[in-house]
Design a protein around this nucleic acid. Structure first.
Lengths: 198, 198
DNA sequence: ATCCGATCAGTCGGATCCGAGTATGTGCGC
DNA sequence: GCGCACATACTCGGATCCGACTGATCGGAT
């Protein structure tokens, strides 16, 4: 039996909460503004921003005491806007959370890995084709990322620090592309044995 | 207004369903056996196998008509076991799903990316330390993966085809490690400007 | 004989997720 | 001065997820 005082109010699981906190640290906002700001800054590349989840996340952040409702006003006949601020605790927890996310790699389950696990079932030829198509998509994505990076950083429109996440994504895409191309080549050359009926 | 016949019964979202299907294609099984088999084969590296989700996933697969209950028997006084088989439709859909997962890269939201987006907030020094610790974890993980790969493939205990998923994971870890080390080094050398107060 | 921990097989309910919906306000073309 | 697309701001409910629990059985050490 655990009393209320002994149980720790574990942090929100949804990374979107991190984004919310990050914005509120700059200035108070209402949820809708948070969503639009996130999209403006293209942080929706890194966070899955869906309205439904956003309001849930904000509520749970409030329950945890990391943010607090500041005022709730109505302009015209529109729905009310509730403006939230971060709390002192919120600031601390934000940094702690961030720190841990960086320090210790979280176990993830990318869909591609699950698919590779059953690649054999696709048959040699179909696998080769599917991989080749993927390689095309990846190459295109990498190009887009490189272009976006050049546009911003080379032009001096923002320091590299703020493009790190794009840089990382690019490196990962490149690595995946290299591997996919290698496997496709190994299928072609017969280097990769295909023990299953195909 | 859409009638029942016109609406397509979209495929299960949870990749665990793919794993279930994959096993049932080999032979009929009951959920508990599916879970243990998945763990034996270490497919729980690629799929998040939790009992709760498993039973949900099986139910939804049955609703979709991709698998079917074959018999439900009781041995002794234990809970009943319901054995499931794949259906013809299940076989087709499995391949189609697999094919698409390979062909088109899905948008993912790794936690690390969300953290990098706010790396600036950590401050120069703390960021450098956190990244260094991560690098350590990643290096250890890479070592483990390399060892596991050698154990199995070099020893000829299984063909490379069945280790692809481990190979892929390893390549991605290596790429991430390289990037993390680079950024840490750039912080040290002052190459990476830190515009925010720190 | 019997007690204990591991194994077997599955249920349950709370938490979370998120797409679709609601309802008003604003700007602009004609 | 009317219609209509778009923006504003949030709510709702179904679907899904998953940790914690139940409760029986089995094997072996005592």
């Amino acid at each position: 039996m655990e009393t209320e005082s002994t149980m720790k109010p574990k942090r929100p699981a949804n990374p979107l909460a991190l984004a919310v906190l990050g914005l509120l640290l700059e200035q108070p906002m209402h949820p809708h503004a948070i969503a639009t700001t996130l999209r403006e800054r293209e942080l929706d590349r890194a966070f899955k921003v869906t309205t439904g989840s956003l309001y849930d996340v904000v509520r749970s952040l409030e329950r945890a005491g990391w943010i607090a409702a500041q005022e709730t006003a109505r302009v015209g006949g529109r729905p009310e806007r509730t403006v939230y601020t971060h709390t002192g605790q919120g600031r601390e927890q934000f940094v702690a959370w961030l720190d841990e996310l960086i320090r210790v790699p979280a176990k993830e389950y990318p869909k591609f890995i699950s698919a590779i696990s059953y690649l054999g079932a696709l048959g040699r030829q179909a696998a080769r084709e599917a991989l080749t198509e993927r390689a095309g998509h990846l190459a295109a994505e990498a190009d887009r990322a490189r272009a976006a990076w050049r546009d911003v950083v080379d032009a001096g429109r923002a320091p590299r620090l703020f493009m790190l996440e794009l840089e990382y994504a690019l490196r990962m895409i490149e690595a995946e592309l290299a591997w996919v191309e290698q496997v496709a080549a190994d299928i072609d050359s017969g280097t990769l044995a295909w023990p299953v009926a195909a």
